[in-house]
Design a binder for these strands. Structure first.
Length: 465
RNA sequence: GCGGGUGUAGUGUAGCCUGGUUAACACGCCUCCCUGUCACGGAGGAGAUCGCCGGUUCAAAUCCGGUCGCCCGCGCCA
């Protein structure tokens, strides 16, 4: 007999079915035993009658989270016993046969709750159990659906998804890199990408015109509720466009996603308001303002485009000008001649998308002329020898017919967390890391053995731990 | 690195301010009873050296000092 999915049982009244899954709850009335069986997030009540002696005997020792295969008849419940609270509350399965596929220890915490009340450390240690809870199953499912929608939508619009390397080159600008030692090149290191920025620009040089990727990005910085060492971005880039086309595309997609998956949420303003950085700071004292009328109403979605960021800002730490966005961001064309004299006054062709006080994405129109790119590096205090070593590939590429281009990256974890009304992005990531970047379940990071170190020609200086 | 919060059975909490018998409650777990429950119900039971180290005291979960873990924020995050 073929296994039936619990969600399909409603159409099989009167039929004998085979179901399998986890025991969600057990109510033993002595003679009558009820077992709720769960598969793929759906539950159904099964009844074991006392006259089925052998099955009844098994039923007495079955416990929550055991895995059963059950054969029984799908029955419509008598009027009085219908439970209107449950999706399948008007049917039940009268069990003829049970095979215990596996037993389970008592879980270390309650799986039937939202889970917010449980210490997160133990949830992460047993993440495979934590993920059984309904709330997290839903989060992973909606995440999948949103990402699928994005893929379909962009594909229809002529974008193609292209994978870019994870093992790449460390660059000094921006966040701290995660580095990977090279075995074949002792003493040299790859870096894991903070974003596919340079690759996607090089794809524009390659004539791809419309690229996107659901991309893992890695940054070795301290975490926050909305920051993880590795996270997922919708990364996209287009040729022959301006900032309006990028913003309009994203805006249309956002609206579609919310209408399709979150019909009960209300978008505060459509089209999304666009405000210049200077005005945003003046009016809200932050570059990611929450412009909701009622800031505790999470069903209200207040999108805001922040535009016209400054191109540079002075870094006290580095004692030099640094890029506000990144060094590939194009300045406003009519301000280029001011670059030498008043660099801090130059505005960037950059834009951020803010949702309810969180930056959920940022992008820009890029530089596509070698001269201008070199000039920017110089203003940033990077010497030609250095930028030629670090960015020479990009500069050289710019000499081979580069289309004007630009794009954006959207933080999908943040977006989904906000839409799902979760307090942090860990709730929408299957296997998140702790505040100090550990995976408790896998127990990573770990030391590696001497042989591995030797192959990599690496020595650990001194153990401080 | 800095600031704030927090740590008591498997889980979630109370008790701490104002030191004083067997550290309480809920859920879970175990045993028994129960033919209509659906977070079933009833009876009984096991389970905690109160994060760790030290101090004060006749006496410390409680007061004091130190230390560690976790969470949130700041720095940092092109």
């Amino acid at each position: 007999m073929e296994r039936s999915s619990i969600k399909d049982l409603k159409n099989k009244i009167g039929k004998s079915v085979k179901i399998s899954g986890w025991v969600d709850a057990r109510r033993d009335h002595g003679k009558l035993i009820f077992l709720d069986l769960r598969d793929a997030g759906e539950k159904v009540q099964t009844v074991i009658l006392p006259e089925k002696k052998e099955v009844h005997h098994l039923g007495e020792k079955i416990r929550p989270e055991w895995i059963l295969e059950m054969i029984g008849e799908v029955k419509k419940r008598p009027e009085k016993m219908v439970n209107p609270e449950l999706l399948l509350g008007d049917i039940e399965i009268e069990i003829d046969k049970i095979i215990i596929l596996n037993q389970s220890k008592t879980p270390p915490f309650d799986l039937s709750t939202s889970g917010y009340e449980v210490d997160e450390e133990i949830r992460l240690l047993y993440r495979y159990l934590d993920l059984r809870r309904q709330r997290l199953q839903k989060n992973l499912k909606i995440r999948h659906e949103i990402i699928k929608f994005i893929r379909d939508e962009l594909s229809e619009r002529g974008f193609i998804e292209i994978e870019t390397p994870l093992l790449t080159k460390s660059t000094p600008e921006g966040a701290r890199d995660y580095v990977v030692p090279s075995r074949l090149h002792p003493g040299k290191f790859y870096a894991l990408p903070q974003s596919p920025q340079q690759y996607k620009q090089l794809l524009m040089v390659a004539g791809i015109e419309k690229y996107f990727q659901i991309a893992k990005c890695l940054r070795d910085e301290d975490t926050r509720g909305d920051r993880q060492p590795e996270f997922t971005q919708l990364d996209l880039e287009m040729s022959f466009i301006d900032e309006n086309e990028v913003m309009n595309l994203i805006e249309e997609m956002m609206i579609k996603i919310i209408e399709k998956f979150f019909p009960n949420n209300r978008i505060l303003k459509r089209p999304f308001p666009r405000e210049k950085y200077g005005d945003v700071i003046k009016n809200h004292q932050t570059d990611a303002p929450d412009i909701r009328n009622n800031k505790s109403n999470n069903a209200e979605l207040a999108f805001l485009w922040v535009t016209d960021f400054p191109l540079f800002e002075y870094s006290d730490k580095e004692k030099r000008l640094v890029s506000v966005h990144h060094p590939f961001t194009s300045p406003h064309l009519d301000e280029i001649e001011m670059l030498d004299k008043f660099p801090k006054q130059i505005r960037a062709r950059a834009y951020d998308l803010v949702l309810n006080g969180f930056e959920i994405g940022g992008g820009s129109i890029r530089i596509y002329q070698r001269d201008l790119q070199e000039k920017i590096f110089k203003i940033l205090g990077i010497k030609p020898k250095v930028y030629n070593t670090q960015f020479g590939h990009l500069l050289e590429a710019f000499e081979f017919g580069v289309p004007p281009h630009g794009g954006i990256a959207l933080g999908l974890d943040r977006l989904i967390a906000i839409l799902q009304d979760e307090p942090n992005i860990r709730e929408v990531i299957a296997f998140p890391k702790t505040g100090d970047g550990r995976d408790l379940m896998m127990n990573a990071p770990t030391e590696i053995d001497k042989e591995q170190l030797k192959e990599l020609d690496i020595e650990i200086k001194k153990k401080k731990y």
